[in-house]
Design a protein around this nucleic acid. Structure first.
Lengths: 153, 153
DNA sequence: ATACCTGCAAAAGCTTTGCACAAGG
DNA sequence: CCTTGTGCAAAGCTTTTGCAGGTAT
């Protein structure tokens, strides 16, 4: 994931706070701690590793709360959820990041990001043709890294 | 899924048979029964519903064999496997069908297919730019059907 | 004859749920 | 206060695995 030094954690917290208010959901310390944890990471992660990482850092939190909060964050677009062909959801922060798609190496599992404006053209055209309001998409390319890559993930 | 009257089940069985031979895997009646079952369907399905359908038709088969065979069929491109954002793999027959992508209604779950040549252009260009051998892809558009749709699936 | 395959059931792995207690509004 | 959220553990669901018996080659 590209680093983006302009992302201000406070801005993100404000957006989340506002989203919670709109939903009449409570602003609990756990929810903000999870948000912070996610925005301190720079990779794709799954719910379990997020949970483990917080436990390791002595933050008392439960899996239930992690899943619950991830869903809240996805619903306000602060986090994106992916299924890279496995039965394990992967997440990444998304505020301040350009929309992008993913290229996944079948051998080493590495995930690379890319952007292509044609994706937006496809969304627009297919929405029109098929009378469908397109609100999101997922495009993953699968294959093999060039140089040598090991099965590490 | 578009119907395709030109698909000949015998042709498909021959391809599978050849694939099994190459792999030095056995040509068991179960494997061909599952292949036939899949090619008699015209929709996207999950492993459990395929299993249930065969049991209902009094074909004695186990989940283990269904999963095993689905993997074999995916590996020789007779079946495609999808993850439409849920933790439940969906499959569809693919021999004789044009490559296509999917549009999924978040409300009613309906899956519509579409083709757009720009997907291939993106694959080619990104493979080049990122030194990646692209062997497959998955493009799903999510949104809402135009007219009224009910949550039925 | 001998691998490999199958059915069955149990296990595994991710996610959701139930419940009692805690705490935000 | 009252309702929603939390932690914990158990349940739920899809998929995988172990094992004993069966079968393709």
């Amino acid at each position: 994931m590209q680093s983006n030094p302009t992302t201000d954690i406070q801005q993100v917290k404000d957006i989340f706070s506002e989203h919670l208010r709109e939903r009449k959901a409570r602003r609990t310390p756990e929810r903000f701690a999870i948000l912070e944890e996610i925005y301190n990471r720079d990779d794709h992660f799954d719910a379990e590793s997020l949970y483990i990482h917080m436990k390791t850092n002595n933050y008392r939190v439960s899996r239930a709360t992690v899943y619950n909060t991830l869903e809240l964050l996805v619903s306000c677009d602060l986090v994106k959820k992916h299924q890279f062909g496995k039965n394990l959801a992967q997440y990444e922060k998304s505020y301040g990041y350009k929309q992008h798609d993913h290229l996944i190496c079948n051998t080493c599992g590495r995930v690379t990001e890319f952007c292509d404006p044609r994706v937006q053209q496809i969304k627009n055209m297919m929405g029109d043709i098929l009378s469908f309001r397109v609100t999101g998409h997922s495009l993953n390319l699968y294959g093999e890294c060039a140089g040598a890559c090991e099965r590490t993930q």
